[in-house]
Write a protein that binds this DNA or RNA. Sequence first.
DNA 1: ATTAAAATATGATATTTATCATCTTCATTT
DNA 2: AAATGAAGATGATAAATATCATATTTTAAT
Lengths: 147, 147
Amino acid sequence: MFFSKSCEYALKATMYLAKQGDNKRVGIKVIARDLNLPADYLNKVLQILVKHKLVLSSKGRYGGFYLTKNELNKSLLKIVKAIDGKDIFNRCGMGIENCSGEKPCPLHNDIKAYRDNILFVLSNKSVASTTSQINNGVTFLSKKVQM
Amino acid sequence: MFFSKSCEYALKATMYLAKQGDNKRVGIKVIARDLNLPADYLNKVLQILVKHKLVLSSKGRYGGFYLTKNELNKSLLKIVKAIDGKDIFNRCGMGIENCSGEKPCPLHNDIKAYRDNILFVLSNKSVASTTSQINNGVTFLSKKVQM
DNA sequence: ATTAAAATATGATATTTATCATCTTCATTT
DNA sequence: AAATGAAGATGATAAATATCATATTTTAAT
Ligand code: FES
Ligand code: FES
């Protein structure tokens, strides 16, 4: 509805890693199983995040993906931008060439408000900030599996 | 970013027809040229709207697509739902199975409020209501072509 | 050193969405 | 009635996205 599937997966996975806590390495199969997502595809997505240094990884036995304080403090917006690109927040909702206040489409004001709000939320919310509500059972990363 | 391309085209085309006024028939080639959209594809999209009785059409010479008072008064939401389906406003932004207050994802509260706002706007705004601002040069349906 | 278990890189396939093209049907003008 | 110009129906192709699969590299335990 707003993000690509890849981006949804990326958000879920980083929030999942945040929930595991500082420096805890988790292999792709476990992540995929817990979030019930396609493992190989999720793998590809996570590798993009690794390249952007939003997630860390170590190879070999007992390796896996993980976050440290540094990554935990990054904004969710960085995840989104890494996967869906920098300008999904500049696109016109009606597909006009580019969204501007100058030559706006008929839905510009309404769409922009929505878009800017999401942008604001994502840029202010850190990866780590999502953990406590998940742990308290207030919010969820999947409905099928209880974690 | 929110709507499919088909849906963007549908919105543009109906707003375009509204601007032409009551009962004015316009052929697909003209619409497509003025909005600079792919004609055959737009044709397909418009045929869906015709099936949903959101746009009228007549065949044969001097035929074309058009709106009457009846269609002009319908909400933009109907256009959106006809093309992108009834439940794009119920989908979780993070891809959780379904969006509910019961088992919300970590972004639910932030996403839902504004999503509901778009829903509200679209359900209250009629096709006709977009015309005057377009005619006054306040809003636009395309940047390339002046209409 | 060997081995095992993990990420990484890369490519193949499938699915969805968008686009192109062609033929049919219908209404209007002549 | 014939011809024309439009929508309607349908299918083929292309492009983008998502998924599956496999071989390679790296790390760490033994
Ligand atoms: S111009 Fe359409 S959303 Fe800004
Ligand atoms: S549960 Fe995710 S947006 Fe409502």
